[in-house]
Design a protein around this nucleic acid. Structure first.
Lengths: 277, 277
DNA sequence: CCAGCGCTTTGATCCAAATCAAAGATTTGA
DNA sequence: TCAAATCTTTGATTTGGATCAAAGCGCTGG
């Protein structure tokens, strides 16, 4: 399903850290495999813009241009001036933050229709680094011009607030995942989450490409890559999933759900204060 | 102990879901121990409002009222209509999210000057539950009226975006913390983070009240409460800190920093793709 | 078509932290 | 003031998952 549009991760040894994005003229409307505008997370934002001027001209004014990044390509670095926001049209992107200690933590896997780079609104700098996990097509949106338009159209700001609050919800879920111990549960929840998101964007919820290596997945979920392998193997033996490298098929969503939600053993339950459900 | 405010979800008390916050007339300007308005996280927001009308009258229009919650008091529940945003004036609040599995994860400890409840902007519902950890004074701000004013003043929206992006940065840091293994590092980073935040609001950065129980701290950091105790004891033996129940003194910030940033052993390092620093 | 490299898998061993237990220390309400 | 109810600590034991090692596998480029 990924190959048909030549998007599959041809890990080209691109040693270059510089942006080697390919600029695509806006005229080239449809990128094969890309989400349609109306499935894009910024669609409502674009729609709001359309309220007052000719749709395309305004889009051109704010959507700087369409870019294509190769696997490993850098969209932006942490602490770099945040001039642009990116909407993913096809492919996938991972974001990560780093400590002084040199450790790196992957904080997000972003799929088509999602928006990147808004978190730096406050400091006007990106808070994390973003890299394409495979050949990825994005819309690059100028923050400054977006702000200028927003000055007159509060709807723009409201959409931005919505997108950010969505990001916050995502992090809350991830925290929930990392707080709970068990590796099986983490992976089950991870797969289910992906499945849901793919479904949201009209991709198959039962077979997809992970696009991240075992090592990245481990980092993202706070477990060792060997453990990721072992759990995948176990799931496979139980007939819950099938994997072949980064390609996955989910055979038994219910079982996965059971694993992910397993009330299981005690896991640092908060005091009565917390459990006020 | 929680009975004092009748908020805890005891079966027999189930009916008392109502907030038993004490309403303080706006006239009562200074709450002992509360942050001054200009140290409050929403100050810029309030200031922006002041631009166009008499300060107090507009504040009264948007800041619904000042409330005081007792320890354990419920500010809001997850999935409840998000009518208000809360600015903490004094005390502290914890936020937590829950899974179907019944597990609860504490996602935040909020100190004076911080803002709560904005994450629900998208869905117009709170995404998490918020409870006072001690007697806590807050400003309750009406979302609807805030939005009405924002319609004319983009600055309001910009401030909200800033506050949200700050929240996102906080979560990114927390993820970094939960991703890295070692319990000592988690606790060292936790203490340092608190110290910084207290300093930010003009409280002592070296002696403060944790306000959370060991159990809550463990939940927040993804470790068992017994481990929290043991690590605190170890820190104490090394002369790095002193604790007495929830009261802490930091004696050797540098040492704490060293522990927190310890390059340490391998910890699921992401692939070359990720470490593009 | 083959060699090299990076990713994935599997096995063996070790250890930090979870669990299980239970005794102090506080708090608080009867 | 006392006793139940909570927290905190500390000790003993267990264990999931990290580490260490070392084969397979599949691209990718020469």
């Amino acid at each position: 399903m990924w190959k048909d549009c030549g998007v599959d991760a041809m890990p080209e040894m691109e040693a270059t850290l510089k942006r080697d994005a390919v600029v695509v003229p806006l005229a080239a409307k449809r990128v094969c495999g890309a989400v349609a505008c109306r499935d894009c997370g910024v669609y409502r934002l674009c729609a709001a813009l359309g309220l007052e001027e000719d749709e395309l001209s305004l889009l051109e004014r704010v959507v700087k241009r369409k870019l294509i990044f190769k696997r490993g390509g850098l969209l932006f670095r942490a602490r770099e001036p945040a001039h642009y926001v990116y909407a993913i049209r096809s492919g996938s992107v991972k974001t990560c933050v780093g400590t002084e200690g040199g450790r790196v933590q992957i904080t997000g896997l972003h799929l088509p229709g999602e928006l990147l780079g808004l978190a730096g609104f406050d400091s006007r700098e990106y808070t994390c680094e973003a890299r394409a996990l495979e050949t990825t097509s994005v819309c690059q949106v100028s923050m400054q011009q977006l702000e200028e338009v927003a000055e007159r159209l509060p709807a723009i700001h409201r959409e931005m607030l919505c997108i950010m609050s969505g990001q916050i919800r995502h992090y809350e879920q991830l925290l929930l995942l990392l707080g709970k111990r068990n590796a099986e549960r983490r992976l089950a929840a991870f797969l289910l989450g992906l499945s849901q998101r793919f479904a949201l964007h009209r991709y198959s919820p039962t077979q997809f490409n992970l696009s991240m290596s075992r090592s990245d997945i481990g980092n993202y979920l706070g477990i060792a890559e060997e453990t990721v392998c072992r759990v995948f193997t176990r799931f496979q033996e139980e007939g819950v999933i099938t994997t072949r490298r980064r390609y996955v098929e989910l055979h038994d969503i219910e079982r996965l759900r059971a694993i992910a939600h397993d009330p299981g053993r005690r896991a640092a339950a908060p005091s009565a204060l917390a459990s006020g459900t």
